[in-house]
Design a protein around this nucleic acid. Structure first.
Lengths: 242, 242
DNA sequence: CGCCTATTTGATCTGATTCAAACAATGTGG
DNA sequence: CCACATTGTTTGAATCAGATCAAATAGGCG
């Protein structure tokens, strides 16, 4: 079932009864394969349904003056990039795939109905929105206060932990299809400077990054470099790498 | 009633029936006067109640490495800085007053009960959380992509519109008790540079700012300078200045 | 093979930081 | 009511992190 990824994500951030899980899994979902670098939705849209990632990686972004792009989030398996549209009709962000992806869509009407029928599901969805917001706050702190190296290290830590939480990690390795340009757009750094910073992290044996794979070589070191602590992610279960 | 400010805020972002408004107004609230520059709650706390601003101005902030402070939001009359704690038990932010303030507190239990009894109230509260998140996204975009001048102009526009929406504006003037240091901490700019940028805005007759009062002299010009559009605030009613 | 996108390197420039000090405004206690 | 402490604003000078511009190199893929 495509909704399994969504259920698993919600499970990783809230406690759900077996009935609730089953109800979410049974939500009627429309599923679609989408190529890389395609917009799924655009700023200003008024969607009648919410999307979630079944497979692949997506990002949400806003455009500021002079077509400068701020990526405001990365979404992995199970994440719902526009869950907010349940109660905010007009999108203030655009959503795009970064890799070839499989995207699921659930109509708002079905979610509303389920929220009334099972308040525990409403709580889980609300929590999903609140954790998104906690991540935004952490990113603001990163962009506003940390050095380029710190920001990049912090982001890599976050993506590693989140990937792990939804079963995408193999040992200390995760798939990492995000380009350096995209990292720059997410962190308010130029791509050139991202490159130089990544090289620094490689030189210092904190990470290995190539061929779309990120390997954590020195987890404590990377956390220190990025001033990272995973609390803001509010994961209900979390297995740190050895 | 102290809860009137909170009700008015929710009214400004969601449509509530007379019964719902009345129910919110009747929520048992504990009220407290607090001096300026006091923490109301701290990162790591697990509050059993939510606070809201009856009078005064507060901010929420996070501390990054080397005690650098990122202010992640300003709160005015009616705002609930830690509404998230309804479903996220541990606070990832600290909350502090910026001026002498009157703060109201409502127990989570009462909010939960009301959410079940009146789903419209749940929607309004959820919307409050979602609009907070939309503001975070806009701030990220500001901090990540806009120049110092742009960031400051954008912030002034936002505060002006929000103050107006809860009845704090007189014509083109609003109370503005936020220091330049605090602006800097909110926007990732040093206080010195904030000062020079504010002087630029003054020189160019976009604003007048002194004695705790901000006057908008050239609204279109300030919006242009800050690349500002109010859509992300999701106000249900909005009266632009003439 | 050749096109396109991503990464890398080098050189130069600049917006913003930092440090330091003066100045203004406000409040406090004697 | 004044001396003084405190906090916020302003100015100047030196410095730097990161941007920009330009071009080379490397990978992936039809």
């Amino acid at each position: 079932m495509p909704t399994t990824s969504f259920t698993r994500k919600l499970e990783s951030i809230a406690s759900l009864s077996a009935e609730e899980k089953e109800a979410i899994r049974k939500l009627p979902a429309h599923v679609m394969a989408i190529k890389a670098d395609q917009d799924i939705a655009r700023q200003g849209d008024r969607p009648f349904r919410t999307c979630f990632i079944v497979e692949g990686v997506a990002c949400t972004y806003k455009i500021a003056r002079e077509s400068r792009r701020q990526i405001v989030g990365f979404q992995f398996r199970g994440d719902a990039p526009d869950l907010q549209s349940i109660h905010l009709p007009t999108l203030d962000i655009s959503i795009a795939t970064l890799t070839p992806s499989v995207i699921g869509f659930i109509q708002h009407a079905h979610l509303h109905e389920l929220c009334i029928r099972m308040p525990g599901v409403a709580t889980a969805l609300w929590r999903h929105c609140l954790i998104d917001a906690a991540v935004f706050r952490e990113w603001m702190t990163s962009i506003g206060q940390r050095s380029a190296r710190g920001r990049i290290s912090h982001l890599l830590c976050e993506i590693y932990v989140r990937s792990r939480a939804v079963g995408l990690a193999q040992d200390t390795k995760i798939p990492f299809p995000i380009t350096q340009l995209e990292i720059g757009d997410a962190l308010g750094i130029s791509a050139v400077h991202v490159n130089r910073s990544v090289q620094y992290l490689r030189r210092n044996k904190l990470i290995a990054l190539s061929d779309g794979t990120l390997e954590i070589l020195d987890w404590p070191g990377l956390q220190r470099e990025g001033d990272f602590s995973d609390e803001y992610l509010n994961l209900s279960e979390y297995f740190p790498p050895k």
